[in-house]
Design a protein around this nucleic acid. Structure first.
Lengths: 151, 151
DNA sequence: CACAGATTCCGTTAATTCATCGGAAGTTTG
DNA sequence: CAAACTTCCGATGAATTAACGGAATCTGTG
């Protein structure tokens, strides 16, 4: 069979695990119509295929005192890219780094406890180029990508 | 003690669970120097406090045929905000929605299998205002936010 | 058409992991 | 100083997962 084939059951299992990675396999199996061993085997196969890349805890940033999220865009020149990446890696509040096409070279997602911390980060990054910072007023809950697989 | 206090052990436990939410509690306990029941109790307390908000599977979007990530920014006017949010909720490829301060009102993260799908999404969103789309060339691995808690 | 090989499933059972309990040690409160 | 509280541990029972052997189905081939 081709590598990338997922049937309904696989998708349902992935959805269940994305919603709650601690749902017992017997419970998932019951929902999708499989026994616990069969469900276990499918999960293992999904892991082996690299589709299921791992399991992670969802932390509440606000409850951790990181109540402020910001998006930082950086427009810079080629020679700054490597040093910038290195600097980002060393900033614990920078939780996502994306290299982009278009006007801006990088888009960062940062979580900070205070505006002062954000200022420090922005100042550091501004050494590499032109920075645009936006506060996140509200985020919708991140969507599980089950439905995106059916199209 | 005040609600929001986390000691070294809590942070270590959260880090371990973020790295792999399926690590046995006995193993986590061994690493941080606690028994399995004590570790279990701390995890439960973190859950009750809302700090540990859940557990989720990490899926490999590329392996799922969603190899193209894009960032879409939308600049629009007040009356479009609610309908836009509703529309975003119905688009399975839109996996993150952030409302921003500044020039742009929304920032979206989308995962699509093909450029054609991206075009469809951009066209739909452009009905609400001015759209700026950037392809993501590369993403650094998302950083666990353990170190961000120490400062 | 039959038959080997492969795949995927099930039921059973062993191994692992988790939840619960009673009690000890240390801290805070009155 | 004692009572109440917290957090820990070890032990044990409950739940979950992993590892079988065998049945059913599908695939390709002589």
């Amino acid at each position: 069979m081709p590598t990338g084939e997922l049937d309904r059951l696989d998708i349902a299992i992935l959805e269940a695990l994305q919603e709650n990675a601690r749902t017992p396999l017997s419970e998932i199996g019951r929902r999708v119509g499989l026994s616990q061993p069969a469900t276990s085997e499918r999960v293992k196969r999904l892991e082996d295929r690299g589709i299921l890349a791992g399991y992670t805890a969802r932390l509440d940033a606000a409850a951790l005192g990181l109540g402020m999220m910001a998006i930082i865009r950086l427009k810079t020149t080629h020679e700054h890219i490597k040093p910038a990446l290195k600097a980002f890696a060393e900033m614990p509040h920078v939780i996502e780094v994306h290299r982009l096409t278009g006007e801006d070279c990088f888009l960062l997602k940062v979580l900070v406890p205070t505006p002062g911390q954000l200022e420090t980060i922005v100042d550091t990054i501004a050494r590499f180029g032109a920075v645009t910072t936006s506060l996140v007023l509200r985020s919708e809950p991140v969507k599980p990508l089950g439905k995106a697989l059916l199209g």
